[in-house]
Design a protein around this nucleic acid. Structure first.
Lengths: 223, 223
DNA sequence: ACCTGAACACCGTTCAAGT
DNA sequence: ACCTGAACACCGTTCAAGT
């Protein structure tokens, strides 16, 4: 594997990102990526052992786009800022972002983000023993929400649409019936994401939360 | 598409599940699935328009394995029970479960689960206007956690392991340094999942939560 | 050190044909 | 109604060879 200075690895990863952006993840093949930088498919094997390793590196490349917030922010502003950044990156690379959920977060860029979260949670007064757990909880929610949005899991649909899909009469979906009006209303995803996050931060640091040590600067919920 | 009685669709889906369980998602091809039920690859196209439609149906098949809790449980027992079931199903089908996050939840089995969640949240006193949002929050966390576990995203690793991966000195990861002892300790994933969920339920229904209407039977956190 | 070219064992899918 | 068989345009990847 050539990892020397002047390696074309970044060039290849950018080409992969471009191919996926234009034609989707299925179009991202060794052959299309190679063609985009004007080489033969086999040339890529000089930089990545195989396609799997290329996709792993792509995960690192995507997370490298998450610009960390400045160091002088409060713990809650830091976490919210990182979350908003991650979600913005998901929207920037919708076709490939779901890869983040299937491949281990072992890249330098991922570890740097986790480190900022650890630090912010400690400043929030979370007990060190609870910090890794809370970090997993927050990053799971943030990644999950971002992937759900870009992957189409948050399919909207009226009561009628949903009961048709379920092949059931509306009466057999009492929960849906009770909130039918809400299912017709458009969703403000930005506001929902923020409200959810603020709720999450409240639970991990709020009064009575397990692993809580001292008061913190949690903002009032705005949702 | 043959959707008549006596269709072999269930047989095909079970074969797909078996192939993935034995040899992984990459081995799940039209050809291997066909071979497993003793037909030619082209026979499958009589039941599914293409591979994508087969995978979509597989998502429904997986969720159909989630046995809904009995109707006489409290709202919190209902939600916890569903969550535990979903996580159990993820562990049953680790190779294919991540598909749930990439494909819209429009299958009858998915809608039935959502309906139970809607109902439980209403019983918890969540305002109808907030119910769909809270449902998305909970299901995003539950699915995200389950996928992270089976997909290996929750890679454990000591401070040393992580700083090596990050290609950084431990000093450049102050957050990790501060919780280094925790990174060496083994994680009780069952307990963590439960503690996280109870925290989540507390935030959506606890005192001061947005969309709260009346007291509810939230259990005390056990984590 | 870096890249090419031919080849191999696979894919998903179309089309025409069989019973 | 259900399935087969041959064929097509792709894949990822190996190997040997070029400069």
């Amino acid at each position: 594997m050539r990892k020397i200075k002047g390696s074309r690895r970044p060039e290849i990863l950018d080409a992969a990102l471009a191919v996926a952006a234009e034609d989707g993840i299925d179009a991202l093949t060794m052959r299309t990526v190679a063609a985009r930088i004007g080489v033969t498919p086999m040339a890529i094997y000089g930089y990545f052992r195989n396609k799997d390793e290329l996709l792993d590196a792509l995960v690192g490349r995507i997370l490298a786009d998450v610009t960390p917030p400045p160091g002088n922010l409060s713990w809650s502003e830091t976490i919210l800022g990182l979350a908003v950044e991650v979600r913005a990156v998901a929207r920037r690379y919708p076709a490939v972002f779901p890869l983040l959920f299937t491949r281990p977060a072992v890249h330098p860029s991922a570890i740097l983000i986790v480190d900022r979260l650890f630090d912010a949670l400690l400043r929030a007064g979370v007990e060190p023993a609870q910090v890794p757990r809370v970090e997993r909880m927050i990053s799971t929610f943030v990644l999950g929400y971002a992937v759900s949005e870009v992957g189409g899991r948050f399919a909207e649909g009226s009561l009628d649409t949903r009961s048709r899909r379920a092949q059931l009469a509306p009466d057999q979906l009492p929960g849906h019936r009770a909130v039918a009006e809400q299912l017709d209303a458009p969703v403000d995803w930005d506001a929902e994401f923020r409200a959810d996050l603020e709720g999450l931060l409240a639970v991990v640091t709020g009064p009575g939360a397990p692993g809580r040590r001292q008061p913190a600067d949690l903002p009032a919920p705005t949702g």
